[in-house]
Structures are given as structure tokens and as C-alpha cells.
Amino acid sequence: MVSKKYILVNTLNLLSNLDKLDVNIKIACRFYQEPAGWERIFSNLSSKGWIRMERRAVKDEYEIEFTGESIDGLEILLSLKSKNGFPDLKMFKKLIENLLTDCWYIDIYYCFRDINIERVARELGLHSNSNEVKRLKFEGSEILVETYPSVSKVIISHRVDLRGVYYIEKIYSKLLKKILTREVSQH
């Protein structure tokens, strides 16, 4: 008989491991018809408590870095970092909602490093010994899952607009969490 204490300790270990996975999140914000930029995005973020540090905005354990923009000014690229690995879901959803008040749509790229590709590939029905791309339909939205075994990376990307911002929670609970939890639990 497995004790409740044992399960609790294991669950806590699992969650703390999940937080520490090496994840990099890129956010490409597309503006509607007229160019905007980091200044506009930042003024929005600053009203939500983010503090500016040149090309970065910092709040609690999170940091957003403005990494680049298209010459026509219609798109900017941000990088989100969290000191604790994968960001807190509530915070992440709120951030995307805030950004979507300025943006037409946002492409989100989650890059998982040093991940156990074999297990992730098996989970998704992909080959584990070659680079693969799988398009998953998810409530009308397309999610791209890319696996790169030779460099131990998985990249998951999808597009959200204001109407579809709730996808973030669903994608997390039905895809990201599932993959990550299996990944971590079998280490």
C-alpha cells in the first residue's frame, strides 16, 4: 500500500522538476495594419506593473526581452524567461491577454531543451530517430509539434488571437503538461 505521504512527496518532486525544465518561450506579436513596436507594448505592460530595464521588462520572477522587429514595424519578437522554468499558467495567460490588446495575433513558440525525445515522440506518435513535424488540430486551431532528436529539442508553436486566448490553458493542460509530466516522471 502506497502511503499518502509518499504520493504527496512524489507529486511535489514532479512539480518542482517540471518547473525546472529548460524551456524558452518566444512570442511574435503581429500588429494590425499600422506599425507599432516595443514602446507601445511596454507602455501597456508598465500599466500592469512591469518595470522597464532598457530592452527588457521585469515583473516578479519573469523577464520579457525585446529581441527584434520587422523593418515594416508590423511585427515584434519577444522572449519570455522565468527563473523557475515553465511560467505560471495564470500569469502567462494574463500576459498574452495584455499583449493582445495591442496585437492582432500572436505566434507562441515553446522550445524545450535537453528533453527525452524518445518518450515525447512516442507520446505523439512521431518517429524518434529523425526530425519530424506534426500538425495537430485543436478546437479549430493548428498546433505545430517539431522534434529534433540529434539536438534533443522539441518545439511546439501555435497562433492565438483575442478570441482564442483560452486555447493557452487548454493547450497547456492537454498537450504541454501531458508531455512534460510524462517526460519528467520517467527520468
Binding site: 524558452n24 529581441t67 519578437l77 522572449s79 524567461k81 513558440y109 522550445c111 531543451r113 539536438v151
Partner: peptide, 9 residues
């Protein structure tokens, strides 16, 4: 590629 974040191979 651009999608891997801030650290290259």
C-alpha cells in the same frame, strides 16, 4: 533557427 530561443547549438 529562430525558434530555439536565446541559446544556439
Amino acid at each position: 533557427p529562430i525558434t530555439i530561443g536565446e541559446v544556439p547549438e
